[in-house]
Amino acid sequence: MRFFLLFITFFSQIYLFGQNNDSIPVLEYEVNYNLGKALVKKGYVFNYKKNTYYHTSKTVFLEDIEKLSIDEVTGIPNVNVFSAGDGSDFNISYKQKNEHITKHSIGYELIKTTEVLQTFIWKPTGIKKIVNGRQCVELTSYFRGRTYLALVDLSVPIDFGPWKFNSFPGLPVLIYDTENKLKWTLTNVSKESDQKIKKFILELKDYSKSLKEMTLKDFIDLYDKTNNGYDMATSKMPRDYQREKSFKKRKRGGLELKFEWEAKD
């Protein structure tokens, strides 16, 4: 009887190992940005052959945005316009090539940028918390103008995370910035078949080819020169409308505020 139980245990381990080998963990996050108009979307990230693939669903704004509304105080009509696409984006980290690819929306264009893969250095803050039933340690890292805090479950051996985050010592359960403008909350861990992942990667690569390509540095120049694409989006404004002069210098307000090639203040 004991031999029979050992036999069953042994073969079930082989079976489960085979299952795990054939299925790839996909981490699902709720993504919240509060950089202007608050939005939410779903983010999915997985590792395949040493590369990390992160992509999101389309954007859902938390407020109803009418195309045309009237300001209650001034009575001035306001027209809402949006940059290209539906807000879905992707990031791919090619570890062997040391390259990172990101999809951006700016003005009326969707652009794919390339940059050198940035490695995060996470430092423990000494705080431990239970998040979504998982025992986590708090880590902190600075990246391109923002300080991030991550609550990581060390019992799960995963080093990747959503967006450009990497080099975790465990599963990132919650990541947010210290200004509470950006947040990624782990909502589910599922497993997908190798076949489904391969099919998705092919589709993503095919889609990626349709996008205009530039370096991240060139994209940031375009972002700065066009007010994050505002000037591109409104370049076809009818001529009888004149823009009121503004003396305020616009600041960057995206996920990344400062870059390594820029002079330090």
């Binding site: 704004f61 001035i76 316009v81």
Partner: peptide, 18 residues
């Protein structure tokens, strides 16, 4: 008339007056 431009990916928003 005011024109509000919103980035679909990030939600960054900017308004100009015309």
């Amino acid at each position: 008339v005011t024109l509000t431009y919103t980035n679909m990916n990030t939600g960054e928003s900017h308004t100009e007056t015309y």
